[in-house]
Design a protein around this nucleic acid. Structure first.
Lengths: 114, 114
DNA sequence: ATTGAATATTCTAATGTTTGAATGTAGTTT
DNA sequence: AAACTACATTCAAACATTAGAATATTCAAT
């Protein structure tokens, strides 16, 4: 298996997390399995679209399913997904704080100049 | 700031990692800053395209730059990015191992059935 | 001032993603 | 077996991403 191909697979994992609805799904599954209906009620999303997202996440190995009667329970397949999401969230928050700081300094600079 | 908006920002961080070339750039920057030319020589990529990827990564706060004469040095802005990438790589590898296992079991199943 | 090297930007065609509407399927209840 | 519930799939339009070609910018050397 070539490195190029590994990067592509790796990218497809990232791609799966690169959508606000899917991140929200992950947040909901963080504390245990949920049915599609439960997710649909918790989120603001149409049934078809939710199903599409879940289907993609299942294909990529992010979630697994279990049927019980009419309901299908979705759960995260690997706790490291939560860790990765949390880390990226931290990167985001640090960026926002930093960006706010930078913006403040920049505006001060401009004020000093003008 | 609404949760929806946070999910969107979070998704845009993930989106930035969701490309094989950009993951490769991150891998190259993992052990220190590099110029565009160094990256270009290390990777199989055109100059314009590399510049586009770097520009996107800079906008999203993934990398920072420093100019020295003609050269511009790029470096990762936050070590947590490496951690997040590593975690996702682990998720991928565990999935591949598992998938291989599943595929083996599935094929055994089919053999048993037929 | 001109030239050359390193990097960035713009434009565009090809390709990929997202979403809702409509329809299909699988299990359950009556 | 017919009707119902929970979920999945298909289709198509809107939108976003990717990459190369051409062009522009920025600094350095002459």
């Amino acid at each position: 298996m070539s490195y190029q191909h590994l990067y592509e697979l790796h990218a497809s994992i990232c791609q799966t997390l690169a959508n606000p609805k899917r991140l929200e799904i992950i947040a909901h599954l963080r504390d245990g399995e949920k049915t599609v209906t439960e997710l649909m009620e918790a989120m603001q999303i149409g049934q078809a679209n939710l199903s599409q997202h879940l289907s993609l996440m299942r294909q990529r190995g992010i979630v697994t399913t279990r049927r019980e009667g009419l309901n299908i329970y979705y759960s995260l397949s690997n706790p490291k997904i939560i860790q990765a999401c949390d880390l990226m969230r931290e990167v985001l928050l640090e960026y926002l704080e930093n960006g706010a700081e930078l913006a403040r300094k920049e505006s001060t600079k401009k004020e000093t100049i003008s």
